Simulated assay, not measured.
Amino acid sequence: MSEDFQFAWMVYAVSTLIMLLAGWWFMRNWRWSWVRQTLLLVVAAVLLIPAKTSVAESVAVPVLPLFVYQTLFEDEGAAPEVITHLIFASGGALAIMLVWGFISLLLKFRRKRQRRFNEDPYFDEQ
């Protein structure tokens, strides 16, 4: 990979991280933090996961900009491998964060019930 391309990747990655930090900052007061984290992780995954095209000796390009470029400017539309990369990047990030969110909701519910039981020893929820 050439130095210019490495520099472009660094600029792209830093600007994407700055955008994600700004998104986190503006959504920091949301009630359910795992929803905010899910949105930010999915956006990060589709913006930062690289995809290689079927062209020989091509370089890795971020998957979402490549998908948009191919959809808009190429005759056949987006290549199947780019669409696959996009689906797996966003779907994988979403699945991980949904599992994390459900586990955190379950733990919060259990802590709330335990605290209620500690305050009232006669509490019996059936």
Rank of each mutant, 00 (worst) to 15 (best):
K112V: 11
Q6M: 10
H85G: 14
W34P: 04
S104W: 12
F7A: 15
W34M: 04
K112L: 15
A89D: 02
S2Q: 11
D120Y: 12
V35G: 13
L39R: 09
A78H: 11
E57I: 12
L17C: 09
P50T: 08
F7C: 13
T71H: 03
P62W: 06
L47M: 02
A22W: 01
S33Q: 01
R36E: 08
N118G: 12
L21D: 01
W100T: 03
V43T: 08
L86N: 02
P65E: 00
G23N: 08
T38F: 03
T84D: 00
V68R: 10
L17Q: 02
S54G: 15
L105S: 03
I87P: 04
E125D: 05
F88G: 03
G101Y: 05
F102S: 04
A93V: 12
A79I: 15
L41K: 13
R111C: 14
L21G: 04
I49G: 02
T38L: 06
S90H: 04
W9R: 13
S104Q: 14
W24L: 10
G92T: 12
T84R: 04
R110Y: 14
A95T: 14
R115A: 15
Q114I: 07
V55F: 05
L41W: 06
Y122L: 03
L107W: 07
I49N: 02
T16W: 14
A45Y: 03
A78T: 09
S33F: 13
D124A: 07
W34A: 02
W100K: 14
F67D: 00
T53S: 03
I49K: 00
E125K: 07
L72N: 09
K112N: 09
D124K: 11
E74T: 12
G92W: 00
I103E: 07
D75F: 14
P50G: 05
R110G: 12
A22Q: 01
W32N: 15
G101N: 00
I49V: 13
Y122T: 09
W9S: 06
W25K: 10
V68E: 11
L86Q: 00
S15C: 12
V99E: 08
L107C: 06
L64W: 06
F26A: 11
A22N: 00
A13P: 02
V61I: 10
N118R: 08
F102T: 09
T71I: 03
V14C: 08
W9A: 13
D75I: 13
Y69H: 13
I18V: 00
E76H: 14
N118P: 10
A78G: 06
A60I: 13
A89C: 03
L17I: 13
L64I: 05
E81I: 14
A89H: 02
R110M: 15
A13Q: 04
A60T: 11
Q70I: 14
W24F: 06
L39N: 15
I18H: 02
W24E: 06
S15F: 08
S54K: 00
A79K: 06
W25C: 12
V61D: 01
A22D: 02
D4Y: 15
A89N: 02
L20K: 04
L47C: 04
W34K: 09
P65D: 02
